[in-house]
């Protein structure tokens, strides 16, 4: 009897957790498909519509250009950060040279610096260079957040690869660079892919930098959300539609790499 109670109790708790996680997300998705008048009620009895998506993509909201900005900023940031970080991660993982520990610590500790500290000087520099409100500015600052993080993650993945085959190849006369290209890269590929997606998510969701450094041309999706706060009040149905646009690509990516995701996201933190 007691056992049965625990069994059901455990299931009930699990269902409760799932509800707590899924409810806010589902509510936003539902609202995105509601007519404005239905959005301002808690009723579930409504006729779904795509109007909100049509509205956010047309004037004056132009969500399309924000999507473009978000995609370009995130893709370019990943394309720069991940290759550089992979090389550094390999070096940190395999070589025992002087200053290695210090350098690694230095790079890691920058991850703990609050973004608001970095954005002040960048604002001043970009202002004098005329780079405010450009995608380039956002890419540069995002690299600051993402690079140390990716080095850390990829190092974790490379550390987990046994060195045997590398050593064997080098005894056979292969050069280090060859070994990296032909042995390490293929084996580390899933880890590097996971890290890239992580890096993409971080950049895609980044808010503080974009809020301060963009005005009109370079606005990304998360900052775009704020623009639905108008004199007429908050336009929830439009915010929800924009919210769906922000979350869907990220959710798909996160679920695709779900297995590695949980491992990667805690890789460096406890080990």
């Amino acid at each position: 009897m007691k056992k049965l109670l625990t069994w059901w109790g455990e299931r009930a708790l699990l269902v409760l957790i799932s509800v707590v996680v899924l409810f806010p997300i589902s509510w936003m998705f539902l609202t995105a498909f509601k007519q404005p008048r239905d959005a301002y009620s808690t009723s579930l009895n409504f006729t779904p519509t795509l109007d909100n998506f049509v509205t956010v993509f047309s004037d004056p909201w132009n969500l399309g250009s924000m999507v473009m900005n978000s995609v370009i900023v995130a893709v370019v940031t990943v394309a720069i950060a991940v290759p550089c970080a992979s090389l550094a991660a390999y070096s940190f993982s395999r070589f025992r040279v002087r200053g290695r520990k210090f350098l690694f610590f230095l790079i890691l500790s920058t991850q703990f610096i609050p973004a608001v500290v970095i954005v002040l000087p960048f604002f001043l520099m970009f202002r004098s260079l005329g780079l405010l409100d450009t995608r380039l500015a956002l890419i540069i600052v995002n690299l600051a957040i993402v690079t140390p993080f990716v080095i850390w993650m990829i190092k974790g993945f490379i550390d987990a690869i046994p060195t045997d085959s590398e050593e064997a190849a080098m005894i056979d006369g292969a050069s280090r660079l060859r070994v990296i290209k032909d042995i390490v890269l293929p084996m580390a590929a899933p880890g590097i892919l996971t890290s890239s997606i992580f890096c993409f998510i971080l950049t895609w969701n980044e808010f503080l930098f974009a809020l301060i450094l963009s005005r009109r041309d370079a606005v990304t999706l998360p900052v775009g959300l704020v623009s639905f706060r108008t004199e007429r009040g908050d336009l929830w149905e439009l915010m929800s539609a924009a919210g769906v646009m922000i979350t869907v690509p990220i959710f798909i990516m996160a679920l695709l790499i779900q297995k590695h995701f949980t491992r990667g996201m805690t890789a460096g933190a406890v080990k």
Partner: peptide, 11 residues
């Protein structure tokens, strides 16, 4: 449980 973590904090 991955979903809340992947969601934009601003959102």
């Amino acid at each position: 449980l991955i979903l809340p973590f992947a969601m934009s904090p601003a959102l």
